[in-house]
């Protein structure tokens, strides 16, 4: 059913996307080229892991080496500096600034919010919850945790509070670990986070889930595929090869864990594959629920929801976080994938 919804959306916006023929099936157009792919050890980066483990990158003639990062921002800088070729990350102020400076380009879409699929959760600390913050409407005057100004958490908090017509105070805490610590000790009131982090914490009684991000930001393009401007402009074949292999990985992932069309075995196989990269410090049994919970749809064909991206860009501008002259043209190269 969810698949239908998405296809409908695709169809609606399809007209604008007729620019490029998207090579959905990898062909080894580009042989034995080594590339570096930046990644975080999150389930949301699974498409690359799958493409690698199942040989889709190799099929596409790419010799992939993963470059792991602790946070999205250094990864964006690594792409800008040429230390990594392709990566997946949320659209952040830094990404927009780097794109404005001609360093990076968004070339495809990855994780999306989708109504009906378990997506990012809005959470509240125990103290705030006990004090009546049981739904996002009650957030007035509360503090909202963000990693940094201009991060996706900031965007979500701003959009959600805006939709509810309430004011929240943003609290920069740099890292997800710090935020969780602050929530546990009631130093901040609310936050939004991917389900595989939200659910175990809520189950353990440390925080409370009070809503879904998808209700406020339907079709939110959470993460995008991006690369250096040089790669996007001059290495067309290589970039297409990467996206094609990535899309195959994404399709496998969606089938196994989001749409669950591969049955128990297919799901289990996928969990084991992902466990090679994510939650490696935990036993498989402990990691399984987190991986399964974290399964959000990765756009088919790495299609990009430009409407959502544009909304995000406009929000950055309205907050004065990026240059007012920042444009979609500088941020996105739409020639590679379907857009919606």
């Amino acid at each position: 059913m969810t698949k239908l919804t998405r296809r409908q959306t695709l169809g609606l916006i399809g007209g604008t996307a007729a620019l490029a023929a998207t090579p959905l099936i990898a062909k080894p157009a580009y042989a034995n080229t080594s590339i570096k792919v930046g990644a975080l050890r999150f389930t949301s980066h699974a498409a690359s892991f799958v493409a690698f483990e199942r040989g889709y990158f190799a099929d596409a003639g790419l010799d992939v080496e993963f470059e792991f990062f602790q946070a999205a921002q250094p990864m964006a800088l690594a792409i800008a500096s040429g230390d990594a070729d392709y990566a997946v990350t949320a659209i952040s102020g830094a990404l927009v600034s780097l794109a404005e400076r001609g360093a990076t380009k968004v070339i495809g879409g990855a994780l999306s919010e989708e109504q009906g699929i378990d997506g990012q959760k809005i959470v509240a600390s125990n103290a705030a919850f006990a004090d009546g913050v049981t739904s996002p409407a009650a957030l007035a005057g509360r503090t909202w945790a963000v990693t940094q100004a201009g991060s996706s958490f900031h965007y979500m908090g701003s959009k959600i509070s805006g939709a509810e017509g309430v004011e929240v105070e943003f609290q920069p805490l740099q890292g997800v670990g710090n935020i969780i610590g602050a929530l546990r000790s009631d130093q901040v009131d609310a936050w939004s986070i991917v389900p595989h982090i939200a659910k175990p914490l809520a189950a353990g009684g440390a925080i409370n889930i009070i809503g879904d991000v998808a209700d406020y930001l339907p079709n939110y393009q959470v993460t995008t595929v991006f690369t250096s401007t040089a790669n996007a402009a001059e290495e067309r074949a290589k970039t297409e090869a990467f996206l094609a292999a990535f899309a195959r990985g994404a399709a496998d992932f969606n089938a196994a864990l989001v749409d669950k069309t591969e049955g128990e075995d297919g799901a289990e196989e996928m969990v084991q594959l992902i466990h090679n990269y994510v939650y490696t410090d935990r036993e498989l049994d402990a990691a399984r629920p987190a991986i399964v919970n974290g399964a959000m749809r990765i756009n088919e064909g790495a299609a990009l929801n430009t409407t959502s991206v544009e909304d995000q860009l406009n929000w950055f501008k309205s907050e004065g976080l990026v240059d007012q002259a920042a444009s979609m043209e500088n941020l996105v190269d739409t020639s590679y994938v379907d857009t919606m």
Binding site: R101, Q148, F170, V322
Partner: peptide
Amino acid sequence: EMLGARRGIGAYILEAGSLYD
């Protein structure tokens, strides 16, 4: 000013860094 500060020179620098401004 890394944690929980919206105002302050340190917070300003960190914000600028995270926005690559």
